[in-house]
């Protein structure tokens, strides 16, 4: 069942067209990633789905309700974790959650139980009476995720959940997201420009660039679509003859490297080597990064503004 369906959403800011007609369906219970460079339209799309922004045209159904007609209903059904922390620095962790529970109209005795449960889940129960100002970046992010989940939403939106965190905290957040998805039976929609994050967490990845969704599939299928293994070569290469090999999916040049993508490179390595005089060579499993590079012709950092 689709919990979100969007119908040709367009958004214009003055003369910039941030979204050029987005129509997607998101299944209930999946982790759905919007992957794209900064300025691709990820946050704009999330803002429209969370009723923060109004679309210029088009609309979306969230849990059967139209975002522009029933924004308050939609808001009750979703949890949001913003790119920049939006916690109340002057309040303790517990107070932040308590104020949230009243804002969302939760019944008091249930809210108090649920706050304890959710704080334990993100390992912040011991710190519940500490003022948020004293928290580290990772702790703040965890508390925000806890707050986003407090009112048992059907959908959790995470906008760049690990931006600016150190590698350990990032892995931590990933674990929490996986665990939450399993235990809370919730649909998770996240935006990211980290390939590994999208790859490791998502059931479905949508690649978005310049306001258009260019690909949408499972990470595995996306990778399979363009090949399975990737060979990176520096040095002389006889492109004409390699192209003729029938197991080669594609070949292109990225700076001084030649990139060969194929379903079975290791198996046919001898045949490829006939046409190479490599200075350096590397074979690896294909990653979402390569998919992205193949589709957009650019690395994600190059598209970042």
């Amino acid at each position: 069942m689709d919990i979100i369906e969007t119908f040709d959403i367009k958004k214009k800011f003055k003369d910039v067209e941030a979204l050029k007609g987005i129509s997607i369906k998101i299944k209930e219970g999946e982790v759905f990633s919007l992957l794209g460079p900064n300025g691709a339209g990820k946050t704009t799309l999330i803002s429209i789905l969370t009723t923060i922004l109004k679309p210029t045209s088009g609309t979306a159904l969230i849990d059967g309700f139209e975002i522009t007609k029933d924004p308050l209903y939609v808001r009750r059904k979703i949890g949001i974790v913003f790119q920049e922390p939006s916690l109340d620095d002057l309040l303790t962790a517990w107070e932040n959650l308590y104020v949230h529970s009243i804002l969302y109209g939760m019944e008091k005795s249930y809210a108090i139980k649920r706050i304890e449960f959710i704080l334990k889940k993100v390992d912040l129960y011991e710190r519940k009476d500490h003022i948020v100002k004293t928290f580290s970046g990772g702790m703040k992010r965890r508390l925000e995720i806890a707050r986003g989940l407090l009112h048992t939403p059907k959908i959790l939106f995470l906008d760049e959940p690990t931006l600016g965190l150190d590698p350990v905290s990032r892995r931590n957040i990933w674990d929490y997201i996986r665990q939450i998805k399993k235990e809370e039976n919730i649909t998770v929609i996240l935006t990211t420009h980290y390939m590994d994050e999208a790859d490791s967490l998502s059931d479905t990845v949508a690649i978005i660039n310049k306001g258009v969704i260019i690909e949408k599939d499972t990470p595995e299928n996306l990778k399979k679509k363009i090949g399975d293994e990737i060979l990176k070569v520096k040095g002389y290469i006889d492109i004409e003859n390699i192209r003729k090999l029938k197991f080669i999916e594609s070949i292109y040049t990225d700076n001084e490297y030649h990139i060969i993508i194929s379903k079975e490179i290791t198996k046919n390595l001898n045949e490829i080597l006939k046409f190479l005089k490599p200075e350096s060579i590397e074979i690896k499993k294909i990653s979402l990064e390569d998919v992205f590079l193949k589709i957009t012709g650019k690395k994600i950092e190059e598209l970042d503004e």
Binding site: T51, L72, I80, F82, H100
Partner: peptide, 14 residues
Amino acid sequence: RFDFLKEVLVAPIS
């Protein structure tokens, strides 16, 4: 400035 208001602005209240 410090974004606390965001939490309230996206809550289901007018």
